[in-house]
């Protein structure tokens, strides 16, 4: 059974069609990359997968692990193992990072029938993951994302992914805004989670990331559809030629 199957997905935002029949199938263990011009609907797709309000799904379906994903609330999806690393992570003043991580982890653990981690075990678990992402205690004690630099926010997203251990991770431009060293750190974090049961959808504009995290498949989203699919070579080709080929079809 596929981990994720998107069939003929049509989505409107404020009555404007954004996705016009997306088809995509991710098997367990696969990493897919989605590239595509600005405004082509990549983030829209990631939000629809994670259940954000404000998207009208006019046609199509999304089957995740054999269940109808669109029937689930965002928090249910998360507890079922769907994770979105946001293109623009939200700042939440007043909520301490560690407390947030603990609440999130325990919500998922309870759902999986595991016991809640106590404060000590939790701290040990988080510190270990944080260290490999070069996130120090001071950052964890701050309010969620508040005043974080762009790169710090992205590392925090990967930390959350590492802690929650999702089955399907959607990473929306996690590589944007990272310096060369941070890109390596983040890539290492992503690769560490690569596993035979987990699927990933990497949304990116740059082949750079794909040199570190090598995808099984590469897709181009244009005009609200998967306009082309291929392997790593497609990313290379896009890097050289850009999206001109696809823009021909823009009305």
């Amino acid at each position: 059974m596929a981990l994720l199957e998107i069939r003929n997905l049509h989505v409107k935002v404020e009555n404007k069609p954004i996705l016009n029949g997306v088809n995509l199938k991710i098997e367990p263990g696969e990493i897919h990359a989605i590239m595509g011009p600005n405004g082509s609907g990549k983030s829209t797709l990631s939000y629809v997968l994670s259940g954000r309000d404000g998207y009208q799904i006019t046609d199509g379906e999304i089957i995740y692990n054999g269940i109808d994903l669109l029937e689930l609330e965002p928090d249910q999806r998360a507890r079922e193992g769907v994770f979105l690393a946001f293109q623009y992570p939200v700042e939440i003043p007043g909520v301490v990072g560690l407390t947030f991580l603990k609440t999130a982890l325990n919500a998922t653990r309870i759902h999986r029938g595991q016991n809640e981690l106590d404060a000590m075990d939790f701290l040990k678990f988080v510190r270990e993951k944080a260290q490999s992402l070069e996130i120090d205690d001071e950052m964890l004690k701050r309010f969620v994302n508040e005043g974080f630099s762009g790169g710090e926010k992205k590392r925090m997203e990967i930390l959350q992914m590492a802690i929650l251990q999702p089955k399907l991770a959607i990473l929306d431009e996690t590589d944007s805004g990272l310096d060369i060293d941070a890109l390596q750190v983040v890539s290492k974090g992503i690769n560490a989670l690569r596993d035979a049961n987990r699927g990933m959808l990497l949304i990116t504009h740059y082949q750079r990331l794909l040199n570190y995290v090598r995808p099984d498949k590469v897709h181009v989203l244009a005009n609200g559809r998967i306009a082309r699919s291929g392997d790593e070579a497609l990313a290379q080709e896009l890097e050289e030629k850009g999206y001109a080929e696809f823009n021909v079809f823009v009305e």
């Binding site: 994670s50 259940g51 954000r52 309000d53 609330e73 965002p74 928090d75 999806r77 998360a78 507890r79 994770f83 979105l84 946001f86 992570p89 939200v90 939440i92 007043g94 909520v95 947030f100 609440t103 999130a104 919500a107 998922t108 759902h111 959350q160 929650l164």
Partner: peptide, 17 residues
């Protein structure tokens, strides 16, 4: 939405905020 996307139920998310 951010909190819910991390598995917090709407009520818990609201209480946290």
């Amino acid at each position: 939405f951010y909190l819910q996307s991390r598995g917090l139920s709407p009520d818990v998310a609201r209480r946290v905020l």
